[in-house]
Structure formats: structure tokens, C-alpha cells
């Protein structure tokens, strides 16, 4: 399969008052076309920084991170589902979802038609005229996901998209996300701090070290698809999460010690 994302020796340093702070260093990662990769790491390990660089919202200070462009130049390279939803409170649900298309100059009827298709898939058809302020957190994040998918990017980047939700809403959305993804098989890079979520969703789980952020270990998740909640009850799932946790534990303790 073709490589979609290539990161070679990526480095990001920030100037601070006490000199340079290295967020990520010698970060190597390759993601194949159509692969769902979850990046897990202790908080502050630079996983969000890496995602922002991928999204073009930030730049590397060394090395190279790029998304290999597809054959269609009009298809956007990436879109982000942000941690804090970042749906625009001043736009209706429909206009939020159609935002990317509007920015690309797609006509009103065409962009609304495509937005409505995605609204239907995330179950928000009834709410297209609502403003985000009238929606719950889970619904807002559905809008945010639909907004990214309507724009049909080559790579979908998700930065702890379910982190702010309660456990039950979270589980429901994980399942919905899987269903949608299994239909489209888009390349996804998904940042999370939940090991269960990572193993449940991903084809591959990448574990990062903290200070500086670097790839520590990778786990291929061979659980059969389509997956659903029953997947979480299998021994294979338990074994994998256990293994991931073993690999992550040292990093978390180290990160906590560094913060203390």
C-alpha cells in the first residue's frame, strides 16, 4: 500500500523564557493510505504538537513531516476534528457542516446537499437549523466530525475529539465513528490518551515518549472488523490493552515525575 503520511526525524522546539523547549524530536512515523493510526502518550508528550504540524497549523524546526498528496489536487489534504469542538457558535449546524465547502466556493445547494448527507450519518438531521449553543457536547462533536468529513479530506486528523465527553456519550460516539470510518476507510491519525479507545479504533497504536516526544513503540491491532462493543470483551482486546499499558506505564511515571 502507498504511504500517505511520512514523518522523518521531525523536530519541534519552542522558545521559552528558560531557553528552548523541545516538544518532539527525531519523530519518525509512516502511515499508509487508508490506515487508522492512534497516537497515545502521557499528557504533555507533544502528540497534539505533531498533529498540529500535520494539519499545517504549526511548522517543524527540523526534519520533515508531510502528507503525500493524492491524485485529485482539489481534494483538501487534511481536516481537523479539534479537541474543543471548535464548531462556530454563530453558524447553524448546517452551515457549520458545509463550512469547508463554502470556503472552497461550492454553490449553496450543492454544499447543503452534501452537508445533509453527513448530518444524516451522524444522526443530526433534525437539528440542522439549530445553533451549537443549543446542542449538547456530544452533538457538538458530531457536528465537528461531520464538518471535517463533508469536506472530504485526504487525511482526517483528530485531536482527542472525545476527551471532553462523559464516558457514556464517548462510547456511543466511538462506535458511530467506527461505523462511519469502516464505510469510507479514510486515512486517520487520532490522538488520544485512552488506551481502550486507541485499541478499539485503530489498525495501529503508536506510543510516544515524553520530553522529548518520540515514537517509543508500535502495536499492530489485528482485531477483526467490523468491531463493536463486544470486541472490548474479547481476550485479544484485553491482552492488547494490557501490552500497550505496559509499554506506556514507564512514560507516564516519568512524565509525572518531571511535572512534580
Amino acid at each position: 500500500m502507498a504511504l500517505k503520511i511520512v514523518s522523518t526525524a521531525a523536530q519541534k522546539r519552542f522558545p521559552t523564557r528558560h531557553g528552548w523547549m523541545t516538544a518532539i524530536e527525531r519523530f519518525d512515523l509512516e502511515v499508509e493510505e487508508g490506515e487508522f493510526v492512534c497516537v497515545v502518550g502521557p499528557s504533555g508528550c507533544g502528540k497534539s504538537t505533531f498533529l498540529r504540524i500535520l494539519a499545517g497549523l504549526d511548522h517543524v524546526t527540523g526534519g520533515d513531516v508531510r502528507i503525500v498528496p493524492g491524485p485529485d489536487p482539489s481534494q483538501p489534504l487534511n481536516n481537523v476534528v479539534f479537541q474543543e469542538y471548535a464548531v462556530f457558535p454563530w453558524k447553524s449546524v448546517l452551515d457549520n457542516v458545509a463550512f469547508g465547502l463554502e470556503m472552497r466556493g461550492v454553490g449553496r445547494s450543492q454544499r447543503y446537499e452534501r452537508a445533509r448527507q453527513w448530518l444524516a450519518k451522524v444522526g443530526l438531521t433534525r437539528f440542522e437549523d439549530y445553533y451549537p449553543g443549543q446542542l449538547s457536547g456530544g452533538m457538538k462533536q458530531r457536528v465537528s466530525i461531520a464538518r471535517a468529513l463533508t469536506n472530504d479530506p485526504q487525511v482526517l486528523l483528530m485531536d482527542e475529539p472525545l476527551g471532553a465527553l462523559d464516558a457514556q456519550t464517548r462510547t456511543v460516539l466511538q462506535e458511530e465513528l467506527l461505523t462511519i470510518w469502516e464505510e469510507s476507510r479514510k486515512t486517520v491519525v487520532y490522538i488520544t490518551h485512552s488506551i481502550e479507545e486507541a485499541v478499539f479504533l485503530a489498525d495501529r497504536v503508536v506510543i510516544m515518549t515524553a520530553h522529548p516526544g518520540r515514537v517509543k513503540e508500535e502495536f499492530r491491532v489485528d482485531l477483526p472488523r467490523p468491531r463493536d462493543l463486544s470486541t472490548m470483551a474479547t481476550p485479544a482486546f484485553a491482552a492488547l490493552t494490557g501490552a500497550v499499558w505496559e509499554a506506556l506505564r514507564d512514560e507516564v511515571t516519568r512524565a509525572m515525575a518531571a511535572q512534580a
Binding site: 497549523l57 462556530f88 472552497r104
Partner: peptide
């Protein structure tokens, strides 16, 4: 900041950024 980033990520140009965000 997150709204500005969302605008940029969805390809808003300068005028669209001003008008929509």
C-alpha cells in the same frame, strides 16, 4: 484561537476569515 485555526484548516482566505470567523 481554536476558531481561527479551524478557519485556516478549512481553507478560509483572508477575506473569508474576516467575514466568517
Amino acid at each position: 484561537e481554536v476558531y481561527l485555526e479551524a478557519g485556516r484548516n478549512f481553507g478560509a482566505n483572508r477575506w473569508q476569515m474576516f467575514r466568517h470567523v
